[in-house]
């Protein structure tokens, strides 16, 4: 187990190193950060002075070596726009994004399991057909369109829910302010979470349905039926447990992917998280922030994958992490 974790830490370091190199290599193609820092009628001379000051005239190797040297001491550079260390900016925005992902995850888990199981055991009812039909539509509409449609329906037409932002957040500790502690907070997080969930929810319903249908055909379920077990016990205790193995694997990876999807959702809802911050940073050519974001997201991916592996080991005793680490 320990060896496995050590191995994972090294993998994470390697992943982040590669990401930082790629991020650094593409930054020249993103545009000129000075255009966002200076007004339009500033002379070329002043531009050059600032470029020199920022070290943008140095060679790629010099710049990257300087970045790496500081990164090893935990300094990923200072954001041009926020004028704060890039890592601090991201950590400030992180709770908002994680809460959004959590909200979406709760919706996905809460809906996909019952709906997936139901459509598997009663595939021909009208309700099942409606669920499957909607899920096809849901998976094919881009998330920003879903989001805008929801804003116009629930905020503009019905006026049930607020249209943007986080609303009244309650401070918990450090950088963490939560949406889950006030009614206004809940109202604000509902639409963005639904929008974000709309991409993954159909996928999970279909996945659980397919797995469940397969399991229901297996010998042990037939045996359980023959034995006369109560059907709900067969479905939810015996069948569902075996259905969940592949769901957890896919789910872990997808929740990581969801962090990436927050870029669109957060932009539409003006959600002050790090996805929105990233898109803004790209528009402003805030290169230190862009590189730092890529590294942090890379780190989140590695962490979620590690956790998935650990959970997998708990659910499926045939997987031995200690052996995998060796």
């Amino acid at each position: 187990m320990f060896a496995y974790l050590v191995k994972r830490v090294f993998q994470a370091a390697a992943v982040m190193f590669v990401i930082s190199l790629i991020g650094f290599a593409i930054q020249d193609n993103l545009g000129d950060p000075l255009r966002e820092l200076l007004g339009q009628s500033v002379s070329e001379e002043v531009r050059q002075e600032l470029r020199e000051e920022l070290g943008l005239n140095d060679s790629f190797v010099t710049q990257y070596a300087r970045f790496l040297g500081k990164a090893l001491q935990g300094d990923l550079g200072t954001s041009y726009f926020f004028k704060e260390p890039a890592l601090d900016v991201i950590l400030k925005k992180l709770p908002a994004t994680l809460e959004l992902v959590l909200g979406a995850t709760l919706i996905i888990v809460g809906l996909s399991v019952p709906l997936g199981v139901y459509t598997a055991i009663r595939p021909n009812t009208i309700l099942s057909r409606i669920v499957m039909g909607i899920s096809i539509v849901g998976i094919s509409i881009p998330v920003f369109l879903t989001a805008i449609l929801m804003i116009f329906l629930f905020s503009v037409e019905l006026r049930w829910l607020p249209s943007y932002g986080r609303g009244d957040v309650v401070h918990v500790f450090g950088n963490w302010e939560t949406n889950f502690a006030s009614l206004d907070g809940w109202a604000h997080i509902l639409l963005p979470s639904l929008a974000l969930a709309s991409i993954m929810l159909p996928l999970f319903i279909r996945l659980i349905r397919a797995e469940m249908m397969e399991v229901l055909q297996s010998e042990y379920v037939k045996y359980a039926r023959a034995k006369g077990l109560w059907p709900w016990r067969i479905y939810f205790v015996h069948a569902l447990k075996n259905t969940l193995l592949p769901v957890i694997t896919v789910g872990g990876v997808q929740i990581g992917t969801m962090v990436a999807y927050t870029i669109l959702t957060e932009t539409v809802f003006q959600w002050p998280g790090m996805g929105f911050m990233f898109l803004e940073a790209v528009n402003r050519v805030d290169t230190p922030l862009i590189v730092a974001y890529l590294i942090v997201v890379g780190f989140i991916f590695v962490v979620t994958n590690t956790i998935v592996d650990l959970i997998y080991g708990l659910v499926n005793p045939t997987v031995n992490l200690a052996r995998m680490g060796a």
Binding site: S155, Q270, E280
Partner: peptide
């Protein structure tokens, strides 16, 4: 003052009375 970058969201916020 709240910055709302996306045009449709900004308009929606006004129409919704936010």
């Amino acid at each position: 003052l709240t910055p709302i970058k996306e045009d449709p969201t900004r308009v929606a916020a006004l129409l919704a009375g936010d």
